[in-house]
Amino acid sequence: MSRLLEGVYEAFQLIVSFDPELIQIVLLSLRISITAIIIATLIGVPVGAILGLKPEKKTRLLNKIIFTFMGMPPVVAGLIIYLILSRQGPLGILGLLYSPTAMVIAQVFLASPIVMGLTMVGIRAKGSEIEETARSLGANSALATWTVIRESRIAILGAIITGFSRVVAEVGAVMIVGGNIAGRTRVMTTAIVLETRRGNFELAIGLGIILLALSFIINSILYNIQKGGKSDD
């Protein structure tokens, strides 16, 4: 217990002194996970909305595939992306393995099905009646779909939050495709694993505290955004 408290104390020392190594790891983690969740949102929300507006019986197989990918173990995702990006793989020529780009790709692969699946479920709940209301008021297909997305924003933000929580906290995929290279691909989760193995608990705990705090801040911001709906008059 004293070891943990000691670790927490030293972790706070590192945080308040803006330890350069810690800052670099945190910023890289955020850059990768935020980029990944933006891309996953751009893919997942429109596809999820379109699927959510189709009758369930027409998308049954796709639903099963998406739900399967939602629960994909990160190490399996990492392995697949590794094989695609490795020198012998179909995209090996791009030389992306062990780069932040590879880590973004792996996280997009993990987050997209989550955003897509939860958006689809959220929209299916009320999407068709919102779409019909929009169409009965003269909306074209694009506006009707946008209205459904807008009206389902709480469910969609929930999907994005869940996707972000998944990627920012995962370690397996980024470890495999990023390699945990210091100063290049080391992120919070991979650093925590490494520092714990080395016995450097203060840095590991410091990163853990920051990870939790960042997650709290981002979730709070997204939660507050849900309370939109201002009048334009």
Partner: peptide, 17 residues
């Protein structure tokens, strides 16, 4: 089915469309 918005924006919907 009213949109989760102000009354004003609901009534304006069809005009904006």
């Amino acid at each position: 089915v009213l949109f989760k918005d102000s009354v004003w924006n609901n009534v304006a919907y069809g005009l904006r469309a």
